[in-house]
Simulated assay, not measured.
Amino acid sequence: MENRLKTGISNITTLMEFVLLGFSDIPNLHWTLFGIFLVIYLTILMCNSIIILVTRIDSALQTPMYFFLGNLSFLEICYVTVTMPRMLMDLLTQKGNISFFACAAQMFFFLTFGSSECLLLTVMAYDRYMAICNPLHYLLIMNHKVCVQLVTVSWISVFPFAIGQTCQIFSLPFCGSNTINHFFCDIPPVLKLACGDTLVNEFVVYVIAVAIVMVPFLLIVVSYGKIISSILKFSSAKGRAKAFSTCSSHLIVVVLFYGTATINYTQLKSNQSEGVGKLISLFFTVLIPTLNPIIYTLRNKDITVALRKLLTKILI
């Protein structure tokens, strides 16, 4: 009995490494997956970098909306870089070993960038609300100083939440298996490895999820409720179509991002299969960042025109 107790204590206190299983359950496809994810990652980097470039150099895009879009593109680059290079390395080497502290760091940065995106999408909804519902005072209220302050708050205000969430997860005792059946250190799969009763920790996750995800989402819903109400009052059909077109890209991104994030972080230790959990995570960590630049560029004439001008300058 005494030996068992010592062994149990040893398993809890000496765990200094995790193993990310990733996609090891389909080993025959690891080269195919590596190629697909490498192309996706490079595409995300390239497309978002182009958006940042055109929103910086094109004089027609020096407005609050495109300032926020450029910041969102930079945030997307940071967001995917937290997970995808590590995932590519694991697919290449077929080894998923990650140290305890590297795992904690990955979770911290993922939570930081993901939470910042939630707040930045809320800021963008507020910007559209001001532009459509209060157009006469829009540029006065949404001046460059205010835009910079809103972006800064979106970045800085999430640090306490990300630090607190990471610390409370990694202060838990871990025993038994150190294998994480996932492709990065996310809260649900790491929490499954914790020993004992984690009810309090799960409650904290829910509270923070409500603060970071649900509250901004409700603010976005309220903003768009007022936006749609204002658009319907427009006398011109052309004006209504233009206003809906301007807002639709952002609304599509919001629905995709918040929908999958909510599903992922409200399941936690549920009975859903780990394969489904990986699929949901792939959706909001890989697919959505890939779709965002496409959604914003294809549905935005100003960006399309700016891209044509840039290509013309490069080719001539």
Rank of each mutant, 00 (worst) to 15 (best):
F109S: 05
T7Y: 09
T290Q: 12
M1Y: 11
V80Q: 05
F74A: 13
I231K: 12
K301H: 07
F67E: 03
A211I: 05
L279Q: 10
M87F: 03
M142A: 09
V305M: 13
K192Q: 13
S171F: 03
Q168K: 12
L33I: 09
Y138P: 01
I263W: 06
L72I: 09
T93V: 04
I316T: 15
L199G: 13
I9Q: 03
L45S: 07
L218T: 08
S10H: 03
D90R: 01
N11A: 15
G277C: 06
F34S: 13
V204F: 11
P216L: 14
I50F: 14
C133E: 05
I57M: 12
L139R: 15
H250S: 08
V205F: 07
M124W: 15
I36Q: 08
S73Y: 10
L193G: 02
T122Q: 06
F257R: 15
V213P: 00
V190S: 00
T112G: 04
S49P: 15
C147W: 01
W155P: 15
A209V: 01
I294Q: 05
C167F: 08
A211R: 10
V204M: 04
C133Y: 13
V146R: 04
P27N: 06
I294Y: 03
Y206I: 00
V215R: 14
L310P: 00
V253G: 08
D25E: 07
V207D: 10
N178S: 10
G96A: 06
T166I: 12
I169E: 00
A105T: 00
C47H: 06
V123H: 04
G35E: 11
I231Y: 06
G275W: 01
L232R: 10
I57P: 14
D186N: 08
C185N: 09
A125L: 04
C78K: 14
L282Q: 15
I156P: 10
K242H: 14
N48M: 14
T43V: 15
I180R: 03
C175S: 14
L150F: 12
L33K: 06
I288K: 05
I40L: 09
G8F: 13
R240C: 12
Q149H: 05
T260P: 13
T43F: 09
N11H: 07
I163N: 02
P135M: 08
A104F: 00
V200S: 11
Q106Y: 02
L15I: 01
N3W: 04
H182K: 02
V19M: 11
Q106H: 00
Y258G: 14
L136D: 11
V207R: 10
S49C: 11
T297L: 02
L91R: 01
F217P: 11
L287Q: 09
L268W: 10
Q149I: 03
L150T: 02
A306V: 10
G239D: 12
I303R: 05
S229V: 08
I180D: 02
L291T: 03
L21E: 11
I12W: 03
M1P: 03
L61H: 15
S236C: 07
G70E: 13
T32S: 12
K192G: 12
F23L: 10
F183R: 07
M46Y: 14
R86Q: 10
